[in-house]
Amino acid sequence: GTLHLNGVTVKVPSLEKAIKAAKKFAKKYNLEVQVHGNTVHVH
């Protein structure tokens, strides 16, 4: 999967790991997580 954090793109081995990391990051910075196919966006 691919993880987008505020314009930074990170390749992640699995989508589940990407979503987990995204949710952790989003919670910390009070951001929103959106999943588009195998790409996770945090903004």
Rank of each mutant, 00 (worst) to 15 (best):
A18S: 02
F25S: 02
L3K: 03
Y29R: 04
H36S: 11
V35H: 02
V12L: 15
K23F: 08
H43S: 09
V42I: 14
K17D: 12
F25I: 11
V42P: 01
H36C: 06
N38W: 14
K17L: 14
V33A: 00
T39L: 09
E32I: 14
K17G: 09
K20I: 12
L31K: 03
N6H: 14
V40D: 00
V35E: 00
Y29A: 05
K28M: 09
A18V: 07
V10Y: 13
V12G: 03
A18N: 00
V42R: 01
H36V: 14
L5C: 15
K27Y: 03
V10D: 02
E32R: 03
K24N: 10
V35T: 03
A21W: 15
K11E: 08
S14T: 09
P13R: 14
K24E: 14
Q34I: 15
H36K: 11
N6A: 10
F25D: 02
V10L: 11
Y29L: 06
E16M: 05
T39Q: 10
V10P: 01
V10H: 06
K17S: 11
K28E: 09
K28T: 05
N30G: 15
N30Q: 07
K23G: 03
K23P: 01
T9W: 13
N38P: 04
V12R: 03
H41W: 10
K11Y: 14
N30L: 06
H4I: 15
A22P: 00
H41S: 15
F25K: 04
K11T: 11
L3P: 03
K24M: 07
A21V: 11
L31Q: 03
A26R: 03
L31A: 05
N38S: 10
V33Q: 00
N38E: 07
K23A: 08
E16L: 09
A21Q: 07
V8L: 13
H43V: 12
A26S: 02
H43E: 03
T2E: 10
T9V: 14
L31N: 03
K17T: 08
V35K: 02
V35R: 02
K24D: 11
H4W: 10
N38F: 08
A18F: 08
P13G: 13
E16T: 11
L5Y: 15
